[in-house]
Simulated scan of single mutants.
Amino acid sequence: MKNNTESFKLKRNERQELWIEGILTMSLLFLVDFAIGNIIVNFIRHNQGVTDGIFIIKQSVTFGPFRQPILSWEGLFWFIMLLINGLIAWWRLVRIYKRIEISRIIDELHYISDGHFEHKIPFQLSGDNERVVKSVNFLVENVIKSMDDERRIEKSKDDLVTSVSHDLRTPLTSIIGYLGLIEDHQYQSEADILKYCKIAYEKSQQMKLLVDQLFEYTKANNLKQRKLEMNPIDVNQLLTQLETSFALEASKRGIKIVVKPLKKDVIMSSSAELVGRIFNNLITNAISYGEGANKICLSAKVKGAQIQFTVANDGKRIPTSIIERIFERFYREESSRNTNTGGSGLGLAIVKEIIQNQGGTINVNSTDKLTSFVFTLPIKGKQTD
C-alpha cells in the first residue's frame, strides 16, 4: 500500500501527447492566421481608401526622440495573432493536461476496485482534481478502518467462542466424569455418591455462572437499544447498603468493608439495576482476587455533573501487564482459572460496558498499598431509548 504522496509526474507517452497536441494546434492556428492574413491583404489592396487611411495613421503615430513611425500593419497583425495563438494553445494544453490527470485518477480507481482496497492515490494535484484525490483517499482510509474493525470483530467472535468453549468444557468434563462413575457403579459407598454429586453440582453452578455472565454481557452491549428505568438513588444510602450486603461474604475472607460517604447527601438519577451490577462485580472481584486484603473501601466524590466512585482494596498489587488488559472480556491470569475463584473473565468487561454506555469512565490504579477501581457516573443519567 502506498501512503506517501508526491507531485504529479507525466509519463513518457503523456509528454509525447502534449508535444504532439501543441505542435498540431500551433500548425492549425498558423494556417488559419495565413488564411485570415491573405483575406485582409486582398481587402486592403482592393480598397484604396483603406490603404490611404493606414498610410496617414502610420505617419501620424510615431515614437522615440527621432519620431520613428510605428511598425507596419502587417507586423502588428502578426504580433496580435501570435499572442492569440499562444493563449489558445495554452488553453488547449491545459485542458489536455487536466484530462490526463482525470485519466490517471480513473486508472487508480480501477486498480482499487480490482481488490486493492488499501491502495491510496499516491500523487498530488491542484484545483478540483486535488479535491477528487483527497476524497478518494479519505474513502480508502474509511474502508481500511472498516476492514480493520471487521477483522477485530471477527477475531473477537473467535476469541469468544474459544473462551466459552474452554470455560464450559472444563466443568462439563468433570460433571460427565463424576456422573459416569455413578452410572458405572464406580463407588464404594453412599458417601462416595454424595461426594460425586456434590462435585457435579458445584461444576454445574460454575457453568450456570458463566452462562449468566454471558447473558449479562450481551445485555450490557445492547444497553443503547434498551429502555431503562431511571431511579432516584441516594449516594450515601447506596454505599451503606453495599456495606451491609457484602459484609458477611467479605468477613469469610477476613476482609472488612469500609465506607467513606459524601459530606452532603446527593441524589443521583440512574438505573438502580445497572448501578447495583457495577458495584456487585467490582466488590466481588475485590473479594475474590484481592489477595492478602484486609479491607475494601467504598467512597464517593462529587466531580462537577458526575459522581466519582472508588472501590479500593489493600491486597496484593496487580502487575502492570495485567492492568493493561484487565477490562478485556475473558482475560484472566492463568492462575485464576481454577475451581476456587471460578471467574469467567467477564465481570470487569461488563462493568466497563455499562459505565461507558451511561456516559461515564473507569480506570484502575494499583500500588503496593492500594488497588483502586475509580469510575464516574452522571448525577442526572439520560434515558436510553
Rank of each mutant, 00 (worst) to 15 (best):
E6S: 12
K9M: 06
L18T: 03
W19R: 11
S27R: 07
V32W: 01
G37I: 02
G37E: 07
F43N: 09
G53K: 12
K58Y: 06
S60Q: 11
S60F: 11
P65I: 00
R67S: 15
F79S: 13
I80M: 14
M81A: 15
L82G: 10
I84Q: 08
G86S: 15
L87R: 14
I96Q: 03
Y97R: 11
I100L: 14
I102H: 11
H110D: 12
D128N: 13
R131C: 02
K134N: 11
L139S: 15
V140E: 02
N142W: 09
I144P: 04
I153W: 06
K157D: 09
D158S: 11
S163E: 08
V164D: 02
V164R: 05
R169P: 03
L181H: 07
Q188S: 04
A200Q: 05
L210T: 05
N221D: 14
N222K: 14
V235G: 02
N236D: 03
Q237A: 11
S245Q: 15
S245F: 08
I255S: 03
I255T: 06
I257R: 08
I257N: 06
A272V: 10
E291F: 13
G304I: 01
Q306I: 00
Q306P: 00
Q306M: 04
G315I: 07
K316H: 09
T320C: 04
R329T: 12
Y331W: 09
S335F: 05
G342Q: 00
A349W: 07
Q356L: 09
Q356G: 02
N357R: 05
G359K: 01
S366D: 07
P378H: 02
D385E: 10
